[in-house]
């Protein structure tokens, strides 16, 4: 009974979300985000590249002897950094989104998830710039193969859906337990280590590798992204579909939770 109601609510909300007025609002919010991002900065979008490049340089200097199994290690590392960065920036920002937009959340009738989606769009844009850099590096190292590249868009969608779902749930939890921000910040610091960013799963013991693969959903995304960008990394159909499925399941679950308690949650903001 509850599931049927929720399903009806979900469908009605999706129809409402994509109506003309909300599409226009989304366009204006995204436009505002793009205008604001780097608007007062001289280097503008270059900062989006310099951040991951600086992390890459530092990590490369530290870990270059760590993973000799990968010939094109800088690309391997940059893909890892970019994916983890995107996930962390998106979720760390969305965790406080209802609090930061308290005025609009409590005083207007716009669908609140539009705020998150529009904010994520700027992070997606920056992520795409980083992935373009990865693509160029792949061509430089001679490991880029266009054969698998058509699989990139569904995987990217799955990854965005995954980050959105997790971000939405964190934003709801924040309304009740503010400490989640600090807990998430602490967890984020660990993410570079519990995700195969600078090492491969073959470098660690099989049990730890299993734990990292099944316990950390980011791992499968990273493996799938690398297998698309680097022909030297074995492509696994399972990793690919598992990641996409996981991403969309996270998004649908997060969205259902959001629809069930959004009004109660924003009262607490």
């Amino acid at each position: 009974m509850h599931c049927t109601l929720l399903w009806k609510k979900l469908r009605a909300r999706m129809v409402y979300l994509v109506n003309r007025s909300n599409r226009r609002l989304f366009y204006e919010l995204v436009r505002a985000e793009f205008k604001m991002a780097d608007s007062n900065s001289t280097w503008g979008v270059m900062w989006s590249l310099l951040g991951p490049l600086a992390t890459l340089a530092v990590m490369l200097a530290i870990f270059k002897t760590f993973s000799p199994g990968v010939r094109e290690y800088p690309l391997y590392l940059l893909l890892g950094i970019s994916c983890v960065n995107f996930f962390l920036i998106t979720t760390t920002y969305t965790v406080k989104i209802f609090y930061l937009n308290r005025e609009i959340v409590l005083n207007s009738t716009i669908p609140r998830e539009i705020l998150i989606i529009s904010k994520i769009s700027i992070f997606v844009y920056k992520f795409l710039i980083e992935l373009t850099l990865c693509l160029l590096l792949g061509i430089y190292f001679g490991v880029f193969s266009s054969k698998l590249f058509f699989l990139f868009i569904p995987l990217l969608m799955g990854f965005i859906a995954f980050s959105f779902g997790i971000g939405l749930v964190l934003a709801l939890i924040y309304c009740f337990v503010i400490d989640i921000e600090h807990i998430w910040m602490l967890a984020s610091r660990l993410y570079y280590f519990v995700t195969p960013v600078f090492y491969t799963l073959n470098d660690i013991s099989p049990n730890v590798a299993k734990l990292i693969y099944w316990g950390n959903p980011l791992s499968s995304f990273l493996i799938a992204f690398r297998s698309i960008f680097m022909s030297t990394q074995k492509f696994s159909v399972f990793d690919y579909w598992y990641s996409i499925g996981l991403g969309f399941i996270c998004m649908i679950a997060g969205y259902c939770i959001f629809l069930s308690i959004e009004n109660i949650a924003v009262e607490r903001v």
Partner: peptide, 9 residues
């Protein structure tokens, strides 16, 4: 810009 943004809201 705010005219368009506020209008869209």
């Amino acid at each position: 810009d705010n005219i368009y943004l506020f209008g869209a809201v």
